[in-house]
């Protein structure tokens, strides 16, 4: 039967590709000239997150909703024994919050990990640096997006997670200044107060 023959060929192809990947040099020029991206959709728009700016990808984590100052703050989630503030990635980018419970969460930030929740994950892609352009060149003006990646006919806005983290940190500092001396419950910065120094170096600055 042709189906069984195709399946056998496919298995052989898998085995050969797997063996070949270990046969080539790890620091080959091909690997050095590509950017690893996580292809996602935010509010129906094609976007991407840099792998190197992430601390992890989590699926189906429970988010405990808490009241917060910003519309993008969703609540807290327990991850690897820590409480992590979770933001809606769509709201962070300026879109309305996506309806329903988001399935995926991108974790980032070394000292104060923050989770950005989103609903649709399209997969892992590697884009040559030559196909990464500035957002202005593609006439895309979106918060925390300075570059876009083009593969084939698809243009994805690359969301800068460090920029988003910085904006959140600035907003947090401003609230600290305005509410100094007023005791408050740990909500948006709950993890910040109890786990101040437990992360590795900031990945957002490792370009």
């Amino acid at each position: 039967m042709s189906g069984r023959h195709d399946t056998a060929l496919s298995a052989a192809g898998f085995r050969e590709a797997f063996d070949r990947s270990f046969a080539v040099a790890h620091d080959s020029a091909e690997n050095q000239q590509t950017e690893s991206l996580l292809a996602i959709r935010v509010a129906g728009n094609r976007c991407a997150l840099r792998i190197r700016e992430m601390n992890g990808l989590l699926e189906g984590r429970k988010i405990v909703a808490l009241p917060g100052p910003g519309i993008d703050f969703m609540g807290l989630a327990g991850i690897r024994g820590e409480l992590v503030a979770v933001y809606s990635l769509a709201a962070v980018l300026g879109y309305p919050r996506e309806a329903g419970h988001p399935r995926w969460m991108a974790l980032c930030g070394k000292e104060s990990p923050v989770g950005f929740a989103f609903r649709d994950l399209e997969g892992y892609v590697q884009v040559p640096f030559g196909e990464i352009y500035s957002a202005a060149r593609k006439n895309i003006t979106l918060g925390h997006v300075s570059e876009v990646a083009q593969s084939a006919d698809t243009v994805r806005a690359i969301i800068s997670l460090p920029s988003a983290l910085e904006a959140i940190a600035k907003r947090r500092e401003q609230r600290k200044k305005t509410t100094a001396g007023v005791p408050r419950a740990p909500t948006e910065n709950g993890g910040e107060n109890r786990q101040p120094e437990n992360r590795r170096g900031d990945a957002g600055h490792r370009q």
Binding site: S21, H26, D27, N31, I51, R52, N55, G56, L57
Partner: peptide, 26 residues
């Protein structure tokens, strides 16, 4: 998902994690 996380971890590990990144990618 584990491979993506492994890739993320490998990227966080710098040059030491490149070989692991290859395995994770495969």
């Amino acid at each position: 998902i584990l491979a993506i996380n492994a890739t993320i971890e490998a990227a966080g590990a710098g040059d030491a994690g490149k070989r692991f990144a290859v395995v994770a990618d495969e």
